[in-house]
């Protein structure tokens, strides 16, 4: 069995550098985060001070807070070097996703 590392850092600029819509890229980033959680306690997404400003990409990340226990996601997914307004956008979208789930239940 492989050893669980304390932390793994994913570099945003490497992840964004591929063809496809930003929602599709968001899906790929989320797949990578989920995959890395198998081997690392915490996944750090390093935005390298890049402003993303994309609702569709961040909405894919926001869905994680609905699909997994949100406290666990908050503990195990960290954003570093992120534009404060992008961080605000992720929180906003995650809140909308959680409210949407409550409405469905």
């Amino acid at each position: 069995m492989s050893k669980i590392e304390p932390k793994k850092t994913l570099k945003f600029k490497t992840l964004i550098n591929r063809p496809g819509s930003l929602r599709a890229i968001g899906e790929i980033i989320v797949d990578e985060i989920i995959e890395e959680w198998k081997y690392s306690e915490v996944v750090e997404l390093d935005f390298e001070n890049e402003t993303v400003a994309s609702a569709s990409l961040f909405d894919e990340i926001a869905k994680l807070y609905k699909e997994y226990p949100k406290e666990e996601v908050k503990q195990r997914l960290h954003f570093i070097n992120i534009d404060p307004l992008d961080e605000r956008l992720i929180i906003h979208l995650a809140k909308l996703r959680l409210e949407q789930e409550k409405a469905i239940i």
Partner: peptide, 16 residues
Amino acid sequence: KALHFAIREVVENSFE
């Protein structure tokens, strides 16, 4: 940032 966001979203929507 709001302008950045607006351009990003509308262009993405056109293609998607």
